[in-house]
Simulated assay, not measured.
Amino acid sequence: MNSDQLTVTVTDGFVPVIDLSSRGSTLGRAAIAEAIGNALRSSGFFIIVGHGVSAELVDRMFTATNSFFKLPDGEKDVVASRPGVSGYRRAGGTLARSLDQKTPPDLCETYAAHVTGEMSDDERSTLGNEWASWTHKNIWPKDPADFKDAWQEYMAAMGELAADLMRLFALALGLEEGFFDDKFDHHGSSVAVNYYPPQTKAPLPGQLRRGPHTDFGSLTILYQEDERGGLQVLQGEDEWRDVAAIPGSFVVNIGDLMALWTGGRWVSTMHRVANPEAGDTSSRLTIPFFYLPNHDASIEPMRPFTDSSAVERFDTVTVSEWVSRKVQKIFS
């Protein structure tokens, strides 16, 4: 492919597939930014290929993580989350609560680690005292042996990819490419894997693998198992659209904070993870990377606001204040 060209294919007209392989050239970056802007104005979601992340690293991350979740509960509980520590949760919370919806608990287990979780206790004490998990220390399992190394390499690779996506976001908004850089120079990002166990009994009424929610940060980069779907995005008021699980791809979406930051020009869209069909007892694992700005970054929305009623409006808000309110609802 010519480096000054961009191939954009469309899966269903709502979540486009964008090839990033031409982002090394000025014209390629401009074309990619335009495609991203179009996606974020309509669905808030797109799928990326040609992203440059090593398939070997993704496979190693998936294998180590999946092996951990297949361990007996007692072994996983050794690295359970607790006050001040991020790790394993046998119950992944109820995401619909972040939007004040009452549903049964989501049918998933989670494991989370944070970029800031490797800092010393003294360093983390400077990250504020809000109800936020980036102040927590990471805890790592001993089995599998390569778990910690795979996670740390994966978080670093995702951080580099996310930083460049934010530069493309700036171009899509007509801003200088480095506009967002100083808001992420000590970012509080995390990987929070979702493991969906086999469903051997019927879910409760209204219970899903992940209930309807919007993400609440700036952007999310999600790895899905190849050809094993479940992620659905809401189109309009009541139509749930499947998001394809394409080998070698990542799903990217923005969260509420990014929608606010753009003054409602871009949309943070409701999504969920549907239950498998009756009789399907397969498990599923997804690996989302949540790219968050610095905890003390002050987010000033672009003016004027659009007329969208979906945007929670503030003159300014710090990232710490914003995220803490959302997380507290999920695990309340």
Results as ranks from 00 to 15, higher is better:
residue 77 D to F: 11
residue 100 D to M: 15
residue 124 R to C: 06
residue 39 A to W: 02
residue 53 V to E: 14
residue 148 K to L: 04
residue 133 S to V: 12
residue 106 D to W: 08
residue 171 L to Q: 09
residue 76 K to W: 05
residue 149 D to H: 08
residue 144 P to N: 04
residue 158 M to K: 04
residue 101 Q to I: 15
residue 94 T to P: 04
residue 117 G to Y: 10
residue 155 M to W: 06
residue 62 F to Y: 15
residue 112 A to R: 06
residue 37 G to Y: 11
residue 121 D to L: 11
residue 34 E to F: 06
residue 72 P to M: 08
residue 165 L to N: 01
residue 120 S to V: 02
residue 90 R to P: 04
residue 140 W to M: 06
residue 70 K to Y: 08
residue 163 A to R: 08
residue 59 D to E: 15
residue 123 E to N: 07
residue 125 S to F: 08
residue 66 N to K: 08
residue 159 G to T: 12
residue 73 D to M: 11
residue 91 A to D: 15
residue 109 E to K: 03
residue 62 F to H: 15
residue 139 I to T: 07
residue 123 E to M: 05
residue 92 G to F: 10
residue 108 C to T: 13
residue 37 G to M: 09
residue 143 D to A: 11
residue 38 N to K: 14
residue 93 G to E: 12
residue 36 I to T: 03
residue 41 R to P: 03
residue 101 Q to V: 15
residue 33 A to I: 10
residue 50 G to N: 05
residue 52 G to S: 14
residue 157 A to Y: 06
residue 157 A to E: 09
residue 118 E to D: 15
residue 75 E to C: 00
residue 32 I to N: 08
residue 127 L to M: 02
residue 111 Y to R: 03
residue 60 R to F: 03
residue 170 A to R: 01
residue 96 A to T: 02
residue 161 L to D: 02
residue 49 V to F: 02
residue 172 A to Y: 07
residue 154 Y to G: 03
residue 121 D to A: 15
residue 32 I to C: 11
residue 116 T to I: 09
residue 126 T to W: 09
residue 119 M to P: 01
residue 86 S to M: 11
residue 128 G to T: 00
residue 125 S to G: 09
residue 35 A to N: 10
residue 90 R to D: 13
residue 166 M to C: 10
residue 67 S to W: 00
residue 128 G to L: 07
residue 135 T to D: 10
residue 163 A to L: 06
residue 99 L to F: 14
residue 162 A to G: 07
residue 85 V to E: 03
residue 98 S to T: 15
residue 101 Q to C: 14
residue 145 A to H: 10
residue 109 E to A: 06
residue 73 D to T: 13
residue 169 F to W: 11
residue 40 L to Q: 01
residue 157 A to F: 04
residue 135 T to V: 13
residue 81 S to R: 13
residue 116 T to P: 00
residue 113 A to N: 11
residue 73 D to Y: 08
residue 129 N to R: 14
residue 68 F to Q: 10
residue 82 R to T: 05
residue 138 N to P: 07
residue 67 S to E: 02
residue 106 D to P: 01
residue 88 Y to A: 05
residue 79 V to T: 06
residue 160 E to T: 13
residue 117 G to S: 14
residue 105 P to H: 08
residue 75 E to F: 10
residue 51 H to W: 13
residue 141 P to Y: 00
residue 54 S to K: 01
residue 49 V to E: 05
residue 159 G to A: 12
residue 162 A to W: 01
residue 47 I to Q: 07
residue 41 R to Y: 12
residue 40 L to D: 04
residue 127 L to T: 00
residue 118 E to H: 12
residue 66 N to D: 06
residue 77 D to R: 13
residue 161 L to H: 01
residue 172 A to R: 00
residue 91 A to F: 15
residue 149 D to N: 07
residue 114 H to R: 12
residue 161 L to T: 02
residue 91 A to C: 15
residue 127 L to W: 02
residue 92 G to S: 12
residue 107 L to G: 09
residue 48 I to Q: 03
residue 126 T to G: 02
residue 138 N to V: 13
residue 106 D to A: 13
residue 109 E to V: 03
residue 146 D to I: 03
